[in-house]
Simulated assay, not measured.
Amino acid sequence: MSTGTQVDFSPATAQALRRAGQLMRQTEQGDVHGLYEAARGALIHVADVDACYVGHYRGSNRLVIPYLYDRGKPGAPDVMSFGEFGLSHWLRTWGKTYTFAQDRGRLVHSGKSFGEDGDPRTVQDAIVAPLLEPDGSVSGMLAALSYTSRHFSQESVAVVEWLARQLRRAISRDAEDITDLDLVTTGSETALDRSADLVHAISDRLRRLQAKVDQSTSSLEGSSSAADVESVADQLRSISLLCGRFDTELALLATEPGAAAGPHAPLTGREAAVARLVVQEGLSNSEIASRLVISEKTVKTHLSHVFQKVGVSQRSELRYVASSTVLGLSEA
Rank of each mutant, 00 (worst) to 15 (best):
V108M: 08
A42Y: 08
F100S: 02
G140H: 11
Y147F: 15
D125P: 07
H45C: 07
S88M: 10
A126Y: 04
E84W: 08
S149T: 08
E37G: 07
V64M: 01
S153M: 01
R40W: 04
H109W: 11
F85Y: 04
R71T: 11
E116I: 14
V54G: 04
G55F: 08
T99L: 04
K73I: 07
S137K: 12
G72V: 06
H151S: 07
E37W: 00
V79I: 11
A143V: 12
D135V: 05
Q154E: 15
P66S: 02
E37L: 08
K112R: 14
R104I: 00
A38F: 08
Y67L: 01
W94Y: 12
G118P: 06
F82W: 09
G140C: 06
L87P: 08
V49T: 12
D48P: 08
G86I: 03
Q154F: 08
D119N: 15
Y36I: 01
V49L: 00
P77H: 02
D103E: 10
T93E: 14
S60A: 15
G95P: 09
P74M: 03
H151D: 05
P66K: 03
H109G: 13
S149K: 10
G86Q: 11
A42C: 11
R121N: 09
S60D: 14
S137A: 13
